[in-house]
Design a protein around this nucleic acid. Structure first.
Lengths: 189, 189
DNA sequence: TCCGTTCTATGACAGCTGTCATAGAACGGT
DNA sequence: ACCGTTCTATGACAGCTGTCATAGAACGGA
């Protein structure tokens, strides 16, 4: 159950980026937050901050993808809007239990360097793609045609991201509920 | 037509925050970008970076609000999904003409300090509120009940923000078109 | 001309950033 | 016991951050 310093650093990187943004998070801060030896950062991540953050982003993308893939386990009558509610659910829990400090790491990264085209940008793109792909796959599993499944996946993730922004800013989860309730007609048709 | 150094700094602050994020933008960079005297920053903004950025955010919120309010001028048959398309339009133009460097300043700010509760956070909240209010007012003008108008406004802005993220990351405007087309059923019912 | 206000110029401050260089410890196999 | 690999420790580097202090210029009224 004890995670290695390396894993802890990746995890801490993700959490801190979620809270303070990409440029707002320093490597020393990450190392300290992970209770990891400072020298180990250099050893495990010779690619520097970009490598560490890149892995953290990919990890987060996987996490979101896996969560989406677990939707069928929760119901015997899967629907698109049910899937969306399932995607929103952990965010409601996060905010209710842990406060509004942490947002979405992908959004945070795109905000800082969405326009650039670096190796790190590629990893952010990959992280988002995994997530979107997983959501689309669930929709296809419900019988939705592949092209529309991707359109809906983009719509769902887009709306969720924006709703997260509202929720954090207002320190209130109701925007998330509003999104679920109001987006529904776009998903059921 | 010549804008004052003060105005130029506010404007430059907005543009740079849009591109590099809040923590990723330095005051010296803003001053230089604005071709403003460095000493003037201290004079016009004794509140420091927070004051400057706060004004930039409010300016951006006003800008978005005014754009939404101009929707009725563009059509004789206003509809919610028409309004949404109107909101998306300038972003398609921005990306097509100026590239994907600049995103939404509100989103960028929330990403960096959405969890905190500082005076600056309050101004971000105010900026977003102005925008949301303006959108809701347009919806009310179409005969939509006030509560639902606010729900739809939140939905529209949320989806737009997320779609902007997609577009910047993929260097492609189609997520914006996808959002407009796919969100429509949620707006027309 | 004098004076007060408004604006600009410049240098410095402590603190942080990411990165690198160098060294030492810990460990496992032989 | 020896040695090579893996991991950790520590100090330093140039460069940047936001802020402050102090000074001077420019300007407009009396």
């Amino acid at each position: 159950m004890e995670r290695s310093p390396r894993e802890r650093m990746v995890y801490s990187a993700a959490q801190l980026v979620r809270a303070r943004g990409l440029a707002g998070t320093g490597v020393r801060e990450i190392v300290e937050h992970a209770n990891a030896p400072r020298g180990s950062f250099q050893h495990y991540f010779p690619g520097g901050k970009d490598q560490l953050v890149g892995e953290a982003l990919l990890w987060a993308g996987d996490f979101a993808a896996k969560w989406a893939a677990r939707y069928p386990e929760t119901t015997s009558d899967p629907t698109p809007s049910g899937l969306f509610a399932h995607m929103v659910e952990p965010w409601k829990e996060e905010f209710a239990k842990r406060g509004y400090e942490r947002g979405c790491p992908v959004m945070a990264s795109v905000a800082d360097l969405g326009g650039t085209d670096t190796p790190l940008t590629g990893q952010i793109r990959a992280a988002l793609n995994r997530w979107e792909q997983a959501v689309a796959e669930e929709l296809v599993r419900m019988g939705i045609p592949v092209p529309r499944a991707h359109h809906l996946a983009i719509l769902m993730i887009s709306t969720l991201e924006g709703a997260i922004m509202f929720a954090r800013l207002h320190h209130d989860v109701t925007p998330l509920n509003t999104a679920v309730a109001t987006l529904s007609p776009a998903l059921t048709s």
